[in-house]
């Protein structure tokens, strides 16, 4: 409880505690005033009619439906689902390899994770779509196939790190108890460690899922047929066709309708997991 000079404490000395309160009240008023000024300025200076005409044109908004949901959002979710399923499967294997006692596994996983995380996702996607056919004569069929494989490869590196951290966060005593009961290493991992690791990593994993969902937008740059357009491509093509920003704004709102509930869900699951422990 020393607050004398020379002793580094985070708390300000008690006598000075009242001072910041009054400045912060003053600061708050300044902030309110400033905000009000900006709002008034925007209301006066911005050409709202023009803005609405170029960004929120009602007829164009309605034009997006139902295809923006039945086709574009559906495709975004398909890419996300396949990409995440593949990324999760690959990521768990990579995490187990990184934690393996067999050195070549550890090295392979470490190199893979470092390389993929060090590259732009877009480059990997383009390589899968255009580089592989040229270099190795490997053609992954369909936009769904190419897009999902690329997203799975990219996300697996991040997921592997999340899974590894989760496994390492499970206390060592859990493994020891399982092994002392006669479970094999594999049984202890599958039955005891990994289920607990997944509880720990649900929130960061949901975060990865949101990032992946947003990364599906990258697929808009590889050749997309009418049927496989996801939200970003759909919005962009809408902009080109109508010379108006409205389709992109609607696409953005659909993205938010998907991502915001996911982040909320992550928070809920985190609270529930904490309560059950």
């Amino acid at each position: 409880m020393t607050s004398g000079a020379g002793s580094p404490t985070n708390e300000p000395p008690p006598s000075r505690r009242r001072l910041p309160v009054s400045t912060s009240t003053l600061g708050q008023w300044a902030l309110y005033g400033g905000t009000l000024a900006v709002v008034i300025f925007l209301a006066v200076a911005v050409d709202w009619a023009r803005l609405q005409d170029k960004m929120f044109r009602t007829d164009l908004v309605l034009d997006q439906f139902p295809r923006i949901v039945t086709q574009a959002a559906k495709n975004t979710l398909i890419f996300t689902a396949f990409g995440f399923a593949g990324g999760l499967a690959l990521g768990v294997v990579l995490a187990l390899m990184r934690l393996s006692t067999f050195r070549p596994y550890r090295w392979f996983a470490a190199v893979y994770i470092d390389v993929i995380r060090g590259l732009p996702a877009l480059l990997v996607l383009i390589f899968i779509a255009f580089g592989l056919p040229i270099a190795l004569d490997i053609r992954i069929p369909g936009t769904y196939g190419r897009g999902s494989v690329a997203l799975a490869i990219v996300s697996s590196a991040y997921i592997a790190e999340v899974v590894r951290a989760g496994i390492e966060a499970v206390p060592k005593g859990q493994t020891e108890a399982a092994r002392s009961l006669g479970m094999s290493h594999g049984q202890a991992m599958r039955r005891i460690v990994i289920p607990q690791a997944f509880r720990i990593i649900i929130p960061p994993m949901t975060n990865e899922l949101v990032l992946l969902l947003k990364d599906t937008a990258l697929i808009s740059v590889i050749g997309v047929t009418e049927a496989t357009k996801e939200l970003t491509r759909f919005g962009r093509d809408g902009v080109n066709a109508s010379a108006n920003a409205t389709p992109l704004v609607v696409a953005g709102l659909v993205y938010l309708a998907l991502t915001l509930p996911m982040t909320r869900l992550a928070g809920y699951l985190e609270r529930r997991a904490r309560a059950s422990r």
């Binding site: 859990q174 020891e176 108890a177 002392s180 009961l181 289920p195 607990q196 422990r277």
Partner: peptide, 20 residues
């Protein structure tokens, strides 16, 4: 060793119950 361990019960200082 797994078969032997199944026949040897162990109780730990920190209990180590499976928390899930």
């Amino acid at each position: 060793i797994d078969r032997v361990r199944a026949r040897v019960g162990m109780v730990f200082q920190q209990f180590n119950l499976f928390s899930h």
